[in-house]
Amino acid sequence: MSLLETKKLVKKFGGVRAVDHVDVRFEAGMLTGLIGPNGSGKTTLINTLTGLLPMDGGTVVVSDNVALHAVRPTSIATYGLTRTFQSVRLFEQMSVLDNLLVVLTERNVWGALFERHGKYHLDTAEDILKKVGLWEKHHELAGTLSYGQRKLLEIARAVSMRARVYFFDEPFAGLFPEMRKVVSAILHELRENGAAVVLVEHDMDLIRSLADYCYVLDSGTVIAEGAPEAVLKQANVIDAYLGK
């Protein structure tokens, strides 16, 4: 089942189409790779789908039944979408624990005003922080963590959302091998639990081992799609990476 699909999605920067009539489908229980050379539009596609950038054309279909021509950032959570940021965006001057609690508690303004986080929220946050090995640091400010820890915390924050579609924009970049294992395991688990996991990654070995399906972007268009093994052998894909 498709949890998120785009039809002829367009995003322009001035005259340049950074996303150019893109059709992609993200299915439940599948890990979909989104690859392509630098500047090919992977992050821009995610930013458009999560409402950070207004779309300039096309349609976004959520769970096969809601067709959108505009996506607001504040509503993506209700569509079951969540994400990490390539340029890690944590709440720096908040504790590690608060970075998770803030996505676990009440969304409604009045509800939030009269709510204090409860044991349930704390337990959930503790579980997830232990999973990424950051529980010992839960009182420290997010801004004091190392780069790798910051990426893990961002992944933990996305996982806390219990979403249906997860976008991970280069979650492995700059991580030590043991941290990479943790991230792989998390992506696997989300996929096993039936989520659609979207992974942007430059390491083709990782794509081969993790992705069920992949799309290759080049200059904002999808130039190839299919099983990673087959796609990565295609001549036009190799050319795109070699910059021909």
Binding site: G51, L90, L101
Partner: peptide
């Protein structure tokens, strides 16, 4: 706590449903 998140990165906290 949400106010603090707005102070830190308003757009990021919007993405999480606020």
């Amino acid at each position: 706590r949400v106010l603090h998140a707005i102070r830190e990165d308003e757009q990021a906290i919007q993405v999480f449903g606020y």
